[in-house]
């Protein structure tokens, strides 16, 4: 060991992040090796990798919430969002990349929920990285078969006359739920509306709670 680990500083002089202090695994070793080879072969740079991670860290469900709140207060925007989600998210400065965004609207008659049965496709450009449960065998298997039971495990009990529509994402097509604007939010400014739109509301395993 060329440096003293006990001072908890990395060779660069920065403190170690907590997740860097665990025993090096085989797959971490592979990540380091591949990253270094790509940089040395001139395919990418450390700056580009760090920029990708910073972009990843900047994306969060607050982005999706802004889109939802705008749709709630601006009917023309909502119409464009439902017609072409990718184009509409760009209007608010969010980049869809290769992702075709399909926005599905909750109404008095229909509740939508999103899953990816085959892998873990998710509208990450509006919500950030998917939560662990979204990627589990349990969620992927059961949501298309017994959605009401799955939703009840999230604490969401739907009225029996509400139709449930389940949307199975693909690598190229990502779904976002446009929740129904709750009663009692009339006159709220857009920013306040966005605050009640959680990640789970936009996946469809929750509904906004104005309380």
């Amino acid at each position: 060991m060329p440096h003293d680990h006990h001072d908890h500083l990395s060779p660069s002089g920065h403190p170690y992040r907590p997740d860097n202090d665990e025993a090096l695994s085989y797959w971490q070793t592979m990540e380091i090796a591949v990253r270094e080879l790509l940089v040395e072969n001139g395919i990418t740079t450390l700056a580009e990798i760090n920029e990708q991670i910073e972009a990843m860290d900047r994306r969060s469900p607050a982005d999706g919430a802004k889109v939802v709140a705008r749709a709630w207060v601006d009917p023309a925007f909502k119409a464009r969002l439902l017609a072409d989600g990718s184009a509409a998210m760009k209007e608010l400065g969010f980049e869809p990349d290769f992702m075709k965004l399909v926005v599905v609207e909750n109404t008095d008659e229909v509740h939508n929920v999103v899953v990816c049965t085959l892998c873990s496709c998710y509208p990450r450009n509006l919500l950030g990285l998917p939560p662990d449960w979204y990627k589990t065998r349990a969620y992927r298997s059961r949501t298309v078969k017994e959605p009401r039971t799955v939703l009840s495990e999230f604490g969401l009990e739907l009225a029996h006359d509400l139709r449930v529509q389940v949307h199975d994402s693909t690598a190229d097509m990502r779904y976002l739920v446009l929740p129904r604007r709750p009663d009692g939010t009339e006159g709220w400014p857009e920013e306040k509306l966005a605050q009640i739109v959680t990640r789970d509301c936009m996946i469809g395993v929750a509904v906004p709670n104005p309380a």
Binding site: N20, V115, D132, W133, R137, Y139, R140, S141, F154, D168
Partner: peptide
């Protein structure tokens, strides 16, 4: 996996490591 039987949803989440 769609439509298969499986256990209850585990709600665990973690912050992603570097």
């Amino acid at each position: 996996m769609g439509g298969k039987d499986a256990e209850a949803i585990a709600h665990g989440e973690h912050d992603f490591a570097l």
